[in-house]
């Protein structure tokens, strides 16, 4: 699987316009960021789960891509339970660590929130081809084409980083500085190749810029698009679903009187 030409199985979600996916994830994220409470996060997560079923990712891909979220959520939860703002009955105390009813509830809310914000973003992006996303950003959102395409071209160069990194590390071993040296040696073995990689990529970027200009890129003249990016009815439905999830989550939380506006 490659980041730039991902193997995306045909599915309803895969056919949607990437800009619509971006919008949905943004709407849901923004709504959830406004409050820390377990009801709004939990409701949103439940509703999203229904949507994730038709995302077209295989189970293996799903767990692989979303692994960081599953690790982060319990971690954030525990930190909050231990150090979160205390309120209500004291459940357990050790030094300056205290667990109260309030901090336990906050912990639950934070854990659910990390999942509810993290999962849809990863899943929707895993089913999006970067080239299609760039087409959408430039044609649908009318972002400046020079920047969108320049960014896309830069993204392509990452594919070569892994290969370069491999050579750079082997070369360090060949030159006698590939092991030993304790912590300082280890730091050198990270920052050394990282700097070489920066040099190589800036050079490559400069050359790529020349190659792009040589193909007429970069002027202010209008350009055409070989791949049209269209917004269809299904995309509007998706954005509608996004608003619905956000609305229902907030609505239920307000009704349950757990809604706590972050700036209040």
């Amino acid at each position: 699987m490659s980041l730039l030409t991902p193997t995306i199985r045909p599915s309803v979600v895969a056919r949607l316009n990437p800009v619509a996916k971006l919008a949905v994830a943004l709407i849901v994220s923004c709504a959830l960021l406004l409050s820390i409470d377990w009801v709004s996060a939990g409701v949103a997560l439940l509703l999203e789960a229904g949507l994730l079923l038709w995302c077209g990712l295989s189970a293996r891909q799903f767990w692989l891509r979303t692994a960081p979220v599953w690790i982060a959520a319990p971690m954030a939860m525990i930190t909050t339970v231990l150090y979160g703002e205390d309120s209500g009955a004291l459940l357990w105390q050790f030094g300056f660590i205290s667990v109260t009813e309030g901090s336990a509830q906050l912990g639950l809310a934070i854990g659910l929130r990390v999942l509810a914000i993290g999962l849809p973003g990863i899943v929707l992006l895993a089913t999006t081809d970067p080239t299609d996303l760039a087409d959408g950003l430039a044609q649908v959102l009318r972002l400046p084409a020079r920047f969108v395409l320049g960014g896309l071209a830069g993204l392509r160069l990452v594919g070569m980083f892994i290969e370069d990194w491999h050579s750079l590390t082997l070369a360090r071993r060949a030159r006698g500085v590939g092991d030993g040296g304790g912590l300082r040696g280890a730091a050198r073995r990270f920052f050394g190749p990282a700097f070489s990689l920066l040099v190589i990529s800036v050079r490559r970027g400069s050359k790529l810029a020349t190659a792009m200009e040589a193909r007429g890129f970069g002027s202010d003249e209008p350009r055409t698009w070989a791949r049209p990016s269209r917004v269809r009815a299904a995309d509007a439905v998706l954005v509608g679903i996004g608003f619905a999830i956000a609305g229902i989550a907030i609505g239920v939380a307000v009704w349950a009187e757990t809604w706590s506006f972050i700036l209040a």
Binding site: G154, S201, S206, L208, M212
Partner: peptide, 14 residues
């Protein structure tokens, strides 16, 4: 310039 955009992108990507 184009080179500004592409190199900024490459740095961003890295």
């Amino acid at each position: 310039r184009v080179v500004d955009i592409v190199v900024a992108s490459v740095i961003g990507v890295a």
